[in-house]
């Protein structure tokens, strides 16, 4: 059923962050949302799992309007969604294995042995085999990010939301995470929304692109369409040419 964002508005005090943003991620596809720093991409993503309530507009995930769900219904929906946080958001009082197991204890019917097997499998997938006993503070930035992905995919969700999954990582780790995102989509049919500034990564994983600019959707289309776009804002962003963005403003 996918994810549909309709005319989303959100302001924090006088600062309008989202001003009628609309976008759709169809079932099984990976949608990459582009946008400058502070453009509201993370704010938009948090609306998809009910971490923020829209001022106006609505978000539909798996056929359910998120802002109208009661608490128990929201928890049920969240069982189907994995969320990769920008700075991993690992629980620092727990080991890595306990972090990955957290969602499984709440979202799955696995017994302790099954949970341990799944944790090992997920840590292996993100190349962190043997790190289960480490505390998050003992990991590098890249390792923490991969651990955040392992935690999000552990429950085998239908939907995966990635908040800048490759920012600040070395090229090899970036490529590895891109492959993981592709694998989630191709092998497990996961519907993904990826927020990123990393254009190489974006072109590797995207089935479609959207661009968030001034609180609205500036572009929505395929990778070929964004490459061919004549819009100076889109071109300025994907080519890293600030002069085009300045011309627009």
């Amino acid at each position: 059923m996918g994810i549909i964002v309709r005319d989303l508005h959100k302001a924090f005090g006088p600062k309008v962050v989202l001003d009628g943003f609309s976008v759709e991620a169809r079932d099984g596809e990976t949608l990459v949302v582009l946008g400058g720093s502070g453009s509201g991409k993370s704010v938009m993503l948090k609306h998809l799992v009910g971490l923020l309530i829209p001022d106006a507009g609505e978000v539909e995930v798996d056929g359910q309007v998120v802002s109208t769900l009661k608490q128990e219904e929201l928890f049920e929906l969240r069982r189907k969604v994995g969320y990769v946080f920008q700075f991993a958001a690992l629980f620092d009082s727990m080991t890595l294995a306990e972090n990955v197991a957290m969602g499984l204890r709440r979202k799955s019917d696995l017994d302790e042995e099954g949970i341990a097997d799944r944790v090992d499998e997920c840590l292996r997938l993100v190349d962190l085999e043997g790190y289960g006993d480490r505390a998050p503070a003992e990991l590098s930035g890249g390792q923490r990010k991969r651990a955040g992905i392992a935690r999000a995919i552990a429950t085998r969700p239908q939907y995966l939301l990635y908040d800048e999954p490759t920012t600040g990582l070395d090229p090899v780790t970036r490529a590895m995470i891109d492959q993981l995102i592709l694998r989630m989509s191709e092998e497990l049919g996961v519907t993904g929304i990826v927020i990123t500034h990393d254009m190489d990564s974006a072109f590797r994983v995207a089935d479609r692109f959207a661009m968030l600019h001034n609180g609205r959707c500036r572009f929505h289309g395929s990778p070929d369409e964004i490459r061919a776009s004549e819009d100076p804002v889109v071109r300025g962003f994907i080519e890293g040419r600030p002069e085009l963005l300045e011309m627009e403003s």
């Binding site: 009910g50 608490q71 969604v81 969320y83 946080f85 700075f87 629980f91 009082s93």
Partner: peptide, 21 residues
């Protein structure tokens, strides 16, 4: 201090996304 740190590092948001109230 503990819960405040969890708030500013998005650990409380992470709890919610993992379906923990």
């Amino acid at each position: 201090a503990e819960i405040g740190t969890m708030r500013v590092t998005e650990q409380i948001d992470a709890l919610e996304t993992l379906a923990y109230p």
